[in-house]
Write a protein that binds this DNA or RNA. Structure first.
Lengths: 166, 166
DNA sequence: GGATGAATACTCGGATATTTATTGTCCGAGTCATCCTGG
DNA sequence: CCAGGATGACTCGGACAATAAATATCCGAGTATTCATCC
């Protein structure tokens, strides 16, 4: 099992977008260059975030992406579900209904114990993701990174930020 | 992302092995037939459980597998890790070190905020899995399944159980 | 009849194909800024 | 000099390959049983 790598990319990009002035945008090309990523592939993930209504796209020259909600209202779960899909980690194949002693789906209505147990763990995972937002990520970044590094970064990004269209 | 299907198989098989008399074994072939699964592929997963010291194999005719620990001491996490591997769900690629403003791995020692956040969720998942055992699964099965269904099942299994070697 | 030995059938174990999911890339549709032309 | 329109460059969006992982299978190594043979 392997969690989609695009989740890390998406979170980093959202953290960058979170630092932009209100209404300003940044294109895929810049985001990819900043993080040293493949532009084409990053585009795929940003598209997923766009479909999930976490960011919105502005087409045409000087266009790009920008956040569609306040950073405090974008949880890690939103990002994970947007990029990786809504399905739970564990998918029960209901093998208890197979074989010579398999139960009858019509009479056994309650979910199987294994399914429920795995779902419980799944819920714990999702609850943890839901309790953390992009705002937390950004806040933590500011606390753990030295000032010169941050200044360099902000300068680079600011030079490539595209203000809200007039 | 997709969680290994073998986990469901392994859990069901462990639940069956848990019902066997002390020291008795059951071969892959029987376990596969009982659950309506591919024998060859199930063998692969049982092997993983064997490598993880959750079950042990008895070779030769009338051989098979049996539990190596009490059911209360086999957690769902043990099974997941045995079959799916020990790696966490999220693997940080440290893309914060990439790109023109990438930090220096030597000076930035603390883990990145995104990594830590995802690890926190990972821990919640694992904690939940660790808190549940095969014993819980078996107990729940007995409570939610009607008596005739259970009897049929136990009879089928008992006829194919191989007692501890004399 | 009992013990001994070889043959045998059955088990697990790891190495090997096939299918599915993830990763990575490309080109077309649409849009806004720019530039050119005319008033 | 200003307004309008055509042009063009840049953006996203979805369709299309390449790679890695999960799924499925097969055959060999080893062992306890079984059967035949000999004492």
């Amino acid at each position: 099992m392997k969690l989609n790598e695009g989740i890390e990319w998406g979170l980093h990009c959202l953290a960058v977008l979170a630092g932009l002035p209100s209404g300003a945008t940044m294109p895929t090309k810049t985001l990819a260059e900043f993080h040293g990523l493949s532009e084409s592939y990053l585009a795929k993930h940003l598209q997923a975030l766009s479909n999930a209504q976490l960011i919105e796209s502005v087409p045409g020259p000087r266009g790009g992406y920008r956040l569609l909600r306040p950073v405090e209202e974008i949880t890690l779960l939103d990002v994970v579900q947007a990029i990786d899909g809504p399905e739970p980690l564990f998918r029960c194949m209901d093998i208890r209904f197979q074989g010579p002693c398999g139960g009858d789906p019509k009479t056994e209505t309650s979910a199987c114990g294994i399914h429920r147990a795995m779902l419980r763990a799944d819920r714990a995972w999702r609850d943890s993701l839901r309790s953390q937002t992009i705002a937390d990520i950004v806040h933590q970044y500011k606390q753990t990174t030295n000032i010169s590094q941050r200044a360099k970064r902000e300068q680079w990004l600011e030079a490539r930020t595209r203000p809200a269209s007039r």
